[in-house]
Amino acid sequence: MIPLQELLILSGVLFAIGLIGAITRRNIIMILLSLEILLAAVNLAFVAFSYSLGDLAGQVVVFFVMIVAAAEVTVGLAIAVVLVRQFNKTEADDLRILRW
């Protein structure tokens, strides 16, 4: 059996990777991928806690999170597709009309 601490450390590392990726990556697709890693970290934490508590609620949450993550990325990809088709832009740096 893997101890809770190790699972939480892994989840923390994943969360950090996702967060850094979402902030530093410039390509919109890569940012969306990083967001998925963020939610994967959350899911891992839920499963780990649910496992150590012996309570099923955490695992139920994971299913809902997966669905919500899919919906979120769908909208993100849709916007990315429109950006490419209408303006031929895929980099976040291209989007800087709205400033101060």
Binding site: F15, A22, L35, L38, G76, I97
Partner: peptide
């Protein structure tokens, strides 16, 4: 067809997803 609206949308989506995570 308005780049400002799309830019606002993608910014809101990225930051909003980080916040909900």
């Amino acid at each position: 067809t308005d780049l400002r609206s799309l830019e606002a949308g993608i910014k809101y989506l990225i930051l909003g997803s980080i916040a909900s995570a």
